Computed example of a mutant assay.
Amino acid sequence: MDLEESRDLFWIASILYGTGLACGFAFVWKSSKKASALASLLLIIAGFVAHTKGLALRGELVKGCPLGNGMERIQFILWSLVLGYLIIRLLFRLNLLGSFSAGLACLGGMTSLAFPSLDTPYWEKEGYDGIFSNHWVELHASVAIFSYGIFGLLAIVSSMYLLQRKSLQTKRAGAVARLLPSIQQLETAGSRLLLIGSVFLTCSIVVGALDWSRAPDALSATKVGLTIGLWLAYCILWLLHFSKRLFGQKFAKVCIVLFFIAICSLGFVRSSPATVAESSLTPTNDAS
């Protein structure tokens, strides 16, 4: 393992997240619960540090926020998810949220690294001079991807809600269900995460609009349509939830489905042919 190589650091982060997941669930069954919970938190923090360094090294390599291919975007989303968890933990505590977050970060990270086609070396192309055409585009892309990380955390909280609800309905609370937060805590956390993610995505849309208005031909209709459509979907979801017209199990399921759609949409976001023809910076404006 080379600690100056971004991919190796991503592997280390994924392994640490996976170990943190194992320690977190050991917290459920072992008598030394405090020690298991502390070990899980420390492993997640260590994984986050390795993850951060890996993204920083890749950023130096590509001369910008590393969002130029599928692997980089997935890694940035997972980094945002873990960062969101660490911040939320300071505000209010939700049992096992760290374990579920670490599990998704481990699975997603290893999956993105296992497929070389997701990590195409676009920075090696002739004439490459940076991933983004300007700082506004970079800010738009990074904030948008960060909001996806928050929505990923929302999907995790929603999954925990469904597990807790099922255990209450069947009246068969297993070891995991007994340690899950209450239905009320999970619904409150979900509401806050939805609002935070929607605010970040809105900021991304506003910043992106400033650049789009100056160069409307630089982006494909597919990219604009997917971005606006996803933003509208989350805003409508927040309005319905705020007005108490959508809540509980249905709200949780919609949150999970929307996050899945957001991740899938990354594969359809591409720069328009005109942009590619005018510039050799193929990955420019490739993330949103």
Rank of each mutant, 00 (worst) to 15 (best):
L3R: 02
L3V: 10
E4C: 04
E5C: 02
F10I: 03
W11D: 05
A13K: 13
A13H: 09
S14P: 03
L16G: 06
Y17E: 06
G18T: 09
T19P: 03
L21N: 02
L21E: 01
A22K: 02
A22G: 02
F25K: 01
A26L: 15
V28H: 06
W29R: 15
W29C: 02
K30Y: 04
S31E: 14
S32H: 12
S36D: 01
A37H: 13
S40G: 14
S40T: 09
L41K: 14
L42H: 05
L42W: 15
F48Q: 15
H51G: 10
K53F: 11
L55R: 05
L57G: 06
R58V: 04
R58P: 00
L61G: 01
C65K: 06
L67E: 04
M71F: 01
M71G: 10
F76A: 05
L78T: 05
L78G: 04
S80T: 11
V82L: 12
Y85I: 07
I88K: 06
R93V: 13
R93G: 01
L94R: 05
L97H: 08
L97T: 03
G98H: 03
F100T: 08
A105E: 08
L107N: 00
G108W: 07
M110C: 08
T111S: 08
S112W: 05
S112L: 04
L113Q: 06
F115M: 10
L118E: 00
T120D: 13
K125S: 07
I131Y: 06
N134Y: 05
H135Q: 15
H135L: 13
W136C: 03
V137I: 15
H140Q: 10
V143T: 14
V143W: 00
I145P: 10
F146H: 01
I150C: 11
F151N: 10
L153T: 10
S159N: 11
M160S: 07
L162H: 07
R165A: 12
K166N: 12
S167R: 07
S167D: 14
R178C: 01
L179E: 13
L179V: 01
S182D: 08
I183N: 09
Q185P: 06
T188K: 13
G190H: 10
I196L: 13
S204H: 06
G208S: 08
G208Y: 08
S213V: 11
P216E: 11
D217H: 09
A218D: 05
T222M: 12
K223P: 03
V224A: 13
G225W: 12
G225P: 00
L226S: 04
I228N: 04
I228C: 11
I228V: 14
G229E: 09
W231T: 12
W231F: 13
L232C: 12
A233L: 15
Y234A: 07
I236Y: 10
L237M: 11
H241R: 15
F247H: 13
G248H: 11
F251K: 12
F251Q: 13
C255D: 01
L258D: 02
F259M: 12
F260W: 07
F260E: 04
I261T: 09
I261H: 00
I261M: 14
I261F: 15
I261W: 12
I263P: 00
G267V: 07
V269G: 05
V269N: 08
S272K: 01
P273S: 08
V276A: 03
E278S: 02
S279D: 03
S280W: 10
S280D: 05
L281W: 01
P283Q: 08
N285H: 08
